[in-house]
Simulated assay, not measured.
Amino acid sequence: MLLSFRIWVKRVAITIFILVIALVSIGGIYEQVARSRVAKDFPAPGKLVDIGGREIHLNCEGNGTPLVVLEAGADTSGSALWQPVQEQVAQFTRVCSYDRAGIMWSDPAKGRRNSLAIAEDLHKALRAANEQAPYILVGASMGGPYVMTYTKYYEKEVAGMVLVDASHPEQTARLAQATGEPESNPIPIAFRALAAITWTGLPRLVLPDAEVPELPSQTAKAITAYQTTSLAAAFAEAAVFEDSLREAGTFRTLGNLPLAVLSRGKPWSAFSEAEQTAGGLTREQFNRAEAAWASMQAEEASWSSNSTHQVLADSSHVMQLERPDAVITAIKDIVGKARRADANP
């Protein structure tokens, strides 16, 4: 009887193992087919530029100088979130958005994806595409430290800068101190697991669609379609988040470089109850955090003697979607200052 039971258990275990292997294999085939379909249905809007064995997606429009370069924040959407801004900036000068390595249409890269590696990639991509300096660098959120790092190493190429609610080198510690909350892991374990098994097709089935009403539906669909393949790259950047902030923090003197700083100012009362709950902070904690953020934004404006600072009381963090008009106006102002400086050296 015992022997029969053991044989039965063994057969069940073997059957389950075979089923798991079959399901994983089917999932892997499904993911490969899905990726082929996505590449066909959502082709890159710009061009793929070879920077030495891998390609970076660079999307440029318009004519004129200086060239405006749009650097996205730390997520899986890449250049797509800049669409409302880029279309309007292209009316008065040349403008390029791009996807960092592994995000959206760009090939992944090996090694640490810190701000220095990102600056080097951007420099190579602009050179390979024959895009000419000087550049106006526009950095949103974590894109702020990235453009500061670029300016540190390629300062002669930069004619101006716009920081769009940009991250500050000391934000992690200062926000933790303001809220009384401990510093958290930037990548939850569940998301790490999803990034590790994208090849099985499971993340494509369980991740929610991107909801970005400010963008055309086709663009939002493209973000959804590519988010599973962009996860690993976004997490690779998050893993060295503090290293990138420290690198950017070593360069905070822009001299008289034209600089515009845009900062969020949306109060607690302007958020819905669901948004307030999702933030995970009490009203008091939120207000302390926003006060700390405002202080850091004012510090960023002090990095140049030729700067402006605007606080947008009707916008939260992603203001290139919430207030693209303000971002466009700030870029136009910096472009104008750079042109006048070039005409009167």
Score class of each variant (00 low, 15 high):
E183F: 15
P258N: 07
P182A: 01
N256W: 07
A210M: 07
T172D: 14
F241C: 00
V206S: 05
W268S: 01
P267E: 03
P169S: 02
K221C: 07
T200M: 04
D243L: 08
L231T: 00
G201Y: 01
G265L: 14
A233E: 02
E181M: 10
E275P: 02
A195P: 12
S244C: 03
A210D: 09
E237Y: 01
P216G: 10
G201P: 09
P203F: 03
R252H: 13
D209I: 10
R192M: 00
P169F: 02
G180H: 12
G265T: 15
E211V: 13
S269D: 08
V206E: 06
P182D: 06
E170V: 12
E211L: 10
L262Y: 11
P188E: 00
D243C: 08
R252K: 15
S263P: 14
A196S: 11
T224W: 02
N185W: 11
A193G: 14
R174V: 10
E181V: 08
T253A: 15
T198A: 01
Q218N: 14
S230D: 08
A193D: 05
R174T: 11
T200Q: 04
R252A: 13
E242K: 09
T200D: 04
T198Y: 00
G201Q: 02
Q218W: 12
Q171M: 14
L194W: 11
A274W: 13
V261I: 08
K266M: 05
E242S: 04
E237V: 04
A233N: 04
R174A: 11
A178V: 00
E170T: 14
S263A: 14
P208T: 06
V240W: 04
P213C: 01
Q227A: 03
A248P: 01
E211M: 10
K266D: 00
E183L: 12
K221I: 08
F235T: 14
A222S: 12
R174H: 11
L259W: 04
L245I: 09
A176L: 12
L175D: 12
N185P: 09
Y226A: 08
K266T: 00
P208C: 08
A178D: 02
P203K: 03
A225C: 13
G255N: 01
T179W: 07
D243Q: 14
P182M: 03
F271M: 02
L207G: 01
T219F: 09
G265P: 15
G180E: 11
L245C: 10
T253F: 09
W268M: 01
E237K: 02
I223L: 02
